[in-house]
Amino acid sequence: MKSTLETLRKEAAHLLKEERVKFVIGYAQGTDLARTTPFFAANVRQAGMLTWTPFCVYSLVKYLLDFRYDDIRLAVVVKGCDSRAVNRLVQDNQFARERVVVLGIPCGGMLDREKVLRVVEPAAALLEAEDRGTEYLLKTDCGEFCFEKQETLLAKCLECEHNVPVVADRMVGPKVPSPARPGMDRFAGVRELEALDTAARSAFWDRHFARCLRCFACRNVCPACNCKECSLERAVPGWQQGVCWLSKRTSLGLNHMFHLIRMYHVTGRCIDCGECARVCPVNIPLRELYRKVAKDANELLGMSLPGLDPEEKPLLTTYQATDPDEFM
């Protein structure tokens, strides 16, 4: 990872020095060993603060939308999973492709910080991380620690389908083997839920949705959500003559409504980056919800994972005479 990081910093410094971009959106070391933080490098000095470790979980592409109406160019660091978000936003004409320099990094998987912190003190300083294929070696000021990928990667990384970015203007660092567990099934969790009887499935989602705080983290982090005005944004004065779909009140029914609206709105647009589930403060397995629709769309309409191709049309904007219509 060291040479990749050097290349990344060099690329970033070059882009900033030449004033090709206003910011390079990447990662910097966070406030403990197992955290990074999104970082907007604005000059050559700051390019030197960029980092690349097995804790760069964040998808940074959504930040492009904050500059949607500004006349500036940006560079953004992407991994395989979040690179799909670039195509997603380009597809919806949310950000002109030529305004962004995509710095793609082939990814060997991200470590689960909880698991790492069971072994290493959070206050330890990370000196260097080495991707050894099947394991990560973390060199810290408290010693060296080895983490077997199959045991300590985030669940989403063990299901990874594209560890090499699907879109990049510069590929930074060498290609690395996919961390995915051989024979993995992206829809295994959905299948488990499908196997439950209706009452048990309903109880499962009731239990989870009852906890929802409606903090909007899932929506705000989601690259499938790019509406200027959101139908879930409640009590916005004058929105559609003051009509609000959902009140701010939390209740099981309204929380169901909230999540089902979101589920349908991300249909054909969800790139399955897993950020929603990561940010949820009350552990709602949102990813399985969106994957259920993705799985249905795949089985019924042959939809592949969104975000692979900037030219593809989002599922719900297309119609073919051969589409199944048993439900009509």
């Binding site: 933080t37 999104p38 970082f39 907007f40 959504k62 930040y63 904050d66 705080l213 409606r214 903090c215 909007f216 983290a217 705000n220 982090v221 940010v279 403060p281």
Partner: peptide
């Protein structure tokens, strides 16, 4: 604020 998501957590 650049990196803030504007969520309510």
């Amino acid at each position: 604020a650049r990196r803030c998501l504007g969520c309510g957590i």
